[in-house]
Amino acid sequence: MKSSLIVRAATRLLVGLLLLFSIWMLLRGHNEPGGGFIGGLIGSTGFILYAIAHGCRAAREALRLEPQTIAMVGLGVALAAGAFAAIPGDALFTGQWLFLWPSEGSKGVPLSNILVFDIGVYLVVLGSVLTLVLALEEEV
C-alpha cells in the first residue's frame, strides 16, 4: 500500500510537532490539564501517523526499541518512582519535592518523583498503544 504524497509531506512536519506537543503535555501535567497518560497518547499518534505514511517497519525502526519493551521499562520507572518514597521513610507513592535555586519571588525550580512517575506512565501508554496499533496494522 502506497500512501499519498500529501500524507507523506504532512507527516514530515506533523510527527515532530506531535512528539514535541506530547512532551509539553507531559511536563505541564501536574498543575494543569495534561500528564503522562495524555502525553503518551499524543506521542503514540505521532508514531502511528509515521506508520501510516511510511509503513510499520519504518515506524518500528524509528522507535528503535520494541514497543512492548518501552511499556515494561515505563512500568519499571513508575514503580521505582513510587518506591523512592521509602528513602525518606514515607508511604509508597508519596510525593517527594526538591526546589532548586529558590529566591524571593518564587519557590524555585520544582523537581519531584511525581514527574518521574508521570514519565513512566507516558512510556507505558506509548508502548502499549503502539504494541496494539502496530500489531493490528501489520495484520491488515
Binding site: M72, V73, L79, A83, L92
Partner: peptide, 17 residues
C-alpha cells in the same frame, strides 16, 4: 502492605526484559 503487590510487578518487568 504494598510490597506483596510491588514485588510481582517488579518481577514482571525484569522477567520481560
Amino acid at each position: 502492605l504494598p510490597l506483596p503487590i510491588i514485588v510481582p510487578f517488579a518481577t514482571a518487568v525484569l522477567a520481560f526484559l
